[in-house]
Design a protein around this nucleic acid. Structure first.
Lengths: 214, 214, 214, 214
DNA sequence: GATGAATGAGTCTTCATTCAT
DNA sequence: TATGAATGAAGACTCATTCAT
């Protein structure tokens, strides 16, 4: 709808309005995941939706609003799936595993959603707010305070985790035959080893030994 | 394209041809790193090079060939810096550390090159050759055969390593104040722990214990 | 168009029909005066009216009819205010003064109406009916026949008067602080001098003198 | 030319560049004068020029620059024609007559130019710099200081003069049969009478008389 | 009567590419 | 070799209009 005065009345957006927006958002996701962010023009999106290009302009103020809606919808859905499972864990290591595992599960059920968001975030790196910590980073930091995680930079670790997950997401979209279960197991183990205290200690010993007698 | 016609002459590309192509590639790198892939039009590149836009079309079959050349040149430069240092190591763990470390060193000395390639790969993720193993993956596999690395999927591990390195690269470009030394140390430790055999064993024990008495 | 169909009923347009049309016309005036003709889309007009855009299409055959109605309504209102005062004058000079003065008064009481019409005429200067004389022109001609006005082209004089009034209207809309009383006095004097017989004679003398001994 | 770096070297714009720009500016004038500002799209302009729409984008940074160029070119041409003739006059009244007369002469030789500028100025009334005095206003004020002109608001008078001239310009474009000589004579007389001191005095007398015995 | 929804034509702009010189 | 000039396709966006409900 073009007017921004969108009924201050009681009803809010109509059913069909909601449905259309959802459909367009879905098609945008589909398109971005398939063609990449750069190739995902309104034309392409409209074509996939089987609608005229201007229908998008009717339901969204502009491409930006559409993209924002994609981010919002997918993030909300992802968070709804993931955080309960993360919070249900008692240990920090468990939480990290749950984070990765649920991320992969979400990816399995919504592969193109994850890929699309990944594409969007990668291309809109304006808001690279290096200043602010992500929830994941916070959780890692907490795990360190608890003494469960070894000493590492939570920021770099969070970057690495997200980068690995996003990479898998894109690979999965390009190649749906990819075994997500295997990937999940690999990544949980990888970052388990990378974060837990005892492994670090042991490796430190190994390092020391290797330095002692080269 | 014209260059092919030129190639059939007896002496290959002339000196000036080579120089021009190199100059253009450099300017392309500069432009992409500065403005991002999307804003790096031939116009912008030509402007930075102080040449006419059509010079690019003259020396390259099209924008695609230019971009490919950028990838090729930077990859070659990177490989030339990195692989000697990697090969000089005797242990697989050392090689992995050298891989990460030299990658960061290359990033420090050629930040814009790395940024440009990163941008390009991000936008042209069409050709996801999942079939073929990268050199890094091969090295990881070798480390497993040697018994130095634990059992993991070399492919997923390679993906994770590259993803982490590229992420740091992008962060570094966006924020040159980023401490590359710290990142290098973080990542080498991270993937050291993630790959080495003893850490895995120890962690496995820890896991078992945690399963025994929850 | 639908309204024609409706008209063939026995009682003409219903009360609600008339009211709606009037409301829409008012909002159109408001919008055009505020945003300018170019920015006054049906969307904007409907928004200000608090109605749906298609209501306009329902009550008017198209934007053109709406615009025509605006012109008609404002002209009628203006004429209703002005002509009685003009006709009340006995001399032609008095009539001209009354014309200008009442025009400015109308401008003061209906600034946005005048501005809207001004905008519309500016953008739709297709139908320049140069053939037909305006009422103002007729009055000027009459003043000449009475011997009260000097000899001049009533057409060009009428153009000049209207142009000056419209110019002041636009200035007033752009800058409501403009002193309309001052403008009214200036313009009445200006065109008084420009039309009256005695001033012309005197000036003619001056001209002749200046030609005699340059 | 798209690049803004336009050769800092010695040559400046090439001959063909200058010619093309001039041609496009002429066609823009033609189009605006014929269709009105609102209908003068780049498409229309390009069509009249017999060139592709993007040629305009090549030679001008955007529509704005084209419009600005139109204003600049026409203003320069007009000023070059008018001001020498205006300055050549010794009396203020002579200058005003020369201003109007030369304006009409320019209109005769460049009718569409004048009409186009008039259209542009009317539509871009953003810069309605009511604060700043135009050269014409300054001249009028000077004439008052000299004691040659009666007391009037130079601003309102300048508005009226320009409005009348622009009105005639538009009428002339719409109807080329219009007798410009007659118009020129009419307007010079009109504003002569409206400004000169003696006419005002005489009229004042008439006014007084009419007030005495109405 | 009224309206949300949809649409196609049209706006300006950017860009890679081609061509004659 | 080099380049100024030109072009067509595609980009996002606006808008008056139409239609089913």
């Amino acid at each position: 709808m073009q007017s921004k005065t969108r009924m201050i009345g009681r009803d809010g957006p109509s059913f069909i309005e909601v449905a259309r927006r959802a459909q367009i958002v879905e098609c945008a996701i589909e398109t971005i995941a398939s063609l990449g962010y750069a190739q995902a023009s309104l034309n392409q999106i409209a074509e996939r939706a089987g609608i005229s290009k201007s229908v998008i302009s009717y339901h969204f103020a502009g491409k930006d609003e559409l993209i924002d809606q994609v981010l919002e919808d997918v993030s909300a859905a992802g968070a709804a799936l993931m955080w309960p499972r993360v919070q249900a864990e008692e240990t920090s290591a468990g939480m990290l595993r749950a984070y990765i595992q649920s991320h992969m599960d979400f990816m399995r059920t919504h592969p193109r959603h994850v890929a699309a968001v990944s594409e969007i975030l990668l291309h809109n790196r304006t808001q690279f707010d290096d200043g602010q910590a992500t929830p994941l980073e916070e959780r890692l930091r907490e795990g360190q305070r608890d003494g469960e995680f070894r000493a590492f930079s939570p920021r770099v670790m969070a970057w690495s985790i997200r980068a690995a997950l996003d990479e898998v997401a894109r690979r999965f979209v390009a190649n749906p035959g990819l075994g997500l279960d295997d990937c999940a197991r690999e990544l949980t183990t990888l970052f388990d080893l990378a974060t837990n205290r005892s492994a670090a200690a042991e490796t430190q010993v190994a390092h020391d030994r290797s330095r002692d007698c080269p």
